[in-house]
Structure formats: structure tokens, C-alpha cells
């Protein structure tokens, strides 16, 4: 900053929260988040905490200004998805080193997604001395770590190839099939026929033990085998035509091959990204090598997916 600024001078803590004056919960101190999405239908949440002004605050004001100093202590509330920013006043000027309680009530109808709260110390008068002190009122002179209120279930950005349910009885879908891939675009997907109740039942089961979860592991390996064969062949075709992968997911395929046992099995131990690109393009474009590639691929993918292992386990567990 072009003037004295005390970064980390403000310690912002959240002690707890409660909904509509009732149920209470505790924040996630490790992530500095306040997860609210599993508490059902609340309309207001009240957060309780405090902001402590540390002793480095003395550095950002000239000696003749305090303590107490001509500044206000605030928490900035920023709700990006609902386009809402405002300040919550914690302490009026003048302020000194020490701890100040803060209680903030948020109305759910005004929020969605994440709400970030950041503590700030802001000058309320111009500084006669000027630089190297913040010269104007309204300038921030100290800050601290923020907290995030997580109002809605975070949608995680997944690196995994997406599997989605689709109604296969609709026009243009293979109504008798179970899975159908859709991979010509930059956003490929594996579609699962949601009309098959039993399969849905298995796929919706959790990661615990028992028939359905075990069957799910097996199904995943099974889907994985056919998916990977398609992914590798499609990526190889693109490389054969264009010399390099075209879409992000194709680069992901090449990278995963080079970093996993797929690469070890298909090519050799040390096949790096570039080697995989050239080998794959080469073997796809040459019919004699293609046959061999497909055979190798079937083997490699089964190993990669742990297919035999899952199947064996399943039979052991569930044979009558």
C-alpha cells in the first residue's frame, strides 16, 4: 500500500450462530466457513463473534492522533450472487486496541451461495500529517482474515467425467440402452437411463457396505471400462487428425494416461505427456497398430478400473 497499512491487525472470530432465535450450530473453524445449508428452512440467521484490534494498529496512525484513533471498525458483507454489499458497524470512532463484539443478522431471502465477511478499520477523518499515513477519511488502514457464510450447498467443481441421468424414453435416445455417451463436444457426458429403476437404486446408494453399495462399485468399474475405451479412441482420433488434443477433456485424457498405470501398460513406464500424444496419434492412424492398441487398451482399462478385483469381491460377499 502507498501508506502505512496493518494487514492482519484485525482478528475476526465467529463463536456461533442461531436460526430464527432457535436452533444453534457451530462454525467450521478450519475453513473459516459457516455452513448453513444443512439446517433446512430458516429465514434468518444471527452470527455472533468479535473483532480484536491488535497492537500493530499504532503503526498506522501518527502519534498525535491517538489512541483512541479516528477510525471506525466495520465488517464488510459481500453477497456476490445476490448483488449485495454493505458494511456492518462494529465500533464507532474513536477506537483503540482491544476486542469488540459483533452480532450480525442475515435475511435468507436476500442471499444465495456464499457470503464473505471481512473486517476493516477505516479512517473517519482526514489525516493532518498525510503520507506516509493514509491521508483521507474513508481509507482503510487495517484488515484481517475473512469468514465465509455458506448459505447453499456448494456446487463442487469436479474433475471427474460427468455421469448424468437422462430419460431414454425420449425421442432420439436409445430407449433399450443403459448408458450412452455424448462425447463429440467440448462438454461430453455419460448418460444413464433413469427409466431403469434398479440401476438408479444402485447408483443412488451411498459409499457404505451391503449389496447395493458393492454393486455400485462394480457398475462404476463396468461403466469405466467402456467409457475409457471411447475416450482414448476419440482422443487418439483427434490427435491423428489435428496433431494434438482439441478439447480440455482430451488433454485430461492424455495427462491421466501419462500419469497412471494406463500409460505404463499401453506405452512404457516413462511415457510423458508429449510421448503419449505422439504414440497415441501414431497407433490410431496405422491400422496394423490399431488392432494391437485396442487389445492393449481393453487390458489396461480393466486394470485401471480394478474390474476383476471388484467383481471378485462382489461374488465373495454376495454369493448365496
Amino acid at each position: 500500500m502507498p501508506y502505512h497499512y496493518a494487514d492482519g491487525c484485525l482478528q475476526f472470530g465467529i463463536n456461533g450462530f442461531s436460526f430464527d432465535g432457535g436452533d444453534a450450530g457451530s462454525p467450521d473453524y478450519d475453513d473459516r466457513t459457516i455452513p448453513l445449508y444443512d439446517y433446512g428452512d430458516w429465514s434468518e440467521v444471527t452470527l455472533e463473534g468479535d473483532v480484536t484490534i491488535g497492537n500493530s494498529v499504532e503503526r498506522v496512525f501518527p502519534d498525535d492522533e491517538g489512541p483512541p484513533f479516528p477510525a471506525e471498525l466495520i465488517v464488510i458483507v459481500d453477497a456476490e450472487e445476490t448483488q449485495l454489499r454493505f458494511e456492518k458497524n462494529v465500533a464507532d470512532p474513536p477506537v483503540s486496541e482491544g476486542s469488540y463484539d459483533v452480532e450480525l443478522t442475515l435475511d435468507r431471502s436476500l442471499l444465495r451461495g456464499d457470503v464473505v465477511m471481512t473486517p476493516r478499520l477505516v479512517r473517519t477523518e482526514p489525516c493532518r500529517k498525510g503520507l506516509p499515513y493514509a491521508p483521507n477519511d474513508g481509507m482503510r488502514v487495517a484488515g484481517g482474515e475473512s469468514w465465509t457464510v455458506v448459505v447453499d450447498h456448494p456446487t463442487k467443481d469436479s474433475d471427474g467425467f460427468p455421469f448424468v441421468y437422462r430419460d431414454f424414453s425420449q425421442d432420439g435416445m436409445p430407449s433399450e440402452d443403459l448408458v450412452h455417451s455424448f462425447s463429440k463436444t467440448p462438454n461430453p457426458k455419460m448418460m444413464i437411463n433413469d427409466q431403469n429403476e434398479n440401476v438408479v437404486d444402485v447408483l443412488q446408494s451411498g459409499n457404505t457396505y451391503g449389496f447395493r453399495p458393492n454393486m455400485k462399485r462394480l457398475l462404476k468399474a463396468d461403466f469405466g471400462v467402456s467409457l475409457w475405451i471411447q475416450l482414448v479412441v476419440l482422443t487418439g482420433t483427434t490427435i491423428a487428425e489435428a496433431g494434438e488434443p482439441e478439447f480440455d477433456w482430451q488433454e485430461g485424457v492424455v495427462e491421466e494416461i501419462s500419469e497412471s498405470e494406463l500409460g505404463t501398460h499401453l506405452f512404457d513406464e516413462n511415457a510423458d505427456y508429449e510421448a503419449v500424444v505422439s504414440e497415441l496419434g501414431d497407433r490410431i492412424s496405422d491400422p496394423s497398430k490399431l488392432r494391437e492398441l485396442i487389445t492393449d487398451l481393453c487390458e489396461a482399462v480393466q486394470l485401471y478400473q480394478g474390474y476383476a478385483e471388484d467383481l471378485d469381491y462382489f461374488i465373495q460377499e454376495h454369493s448365496p
Binding site: E72, I74, R85, E87, R120, V122, G138, R140
Partner: peptide, 12 residues
């Protein structure tokens, strides 16, 4: 980058 927006009024 230096002024805290939320502490400013519309007139300011």
C-alpha cells in the same frame, strides 16, 4: 484499492 467503498455515502 485504498478507499473502503462501503464506508462512503452516495453523496460522497
Amino acid at each position: 484499492s485504498t478507499t473502503q467503498l462501503e464506508s462512503r455515502s452516495k453523496d460522497q
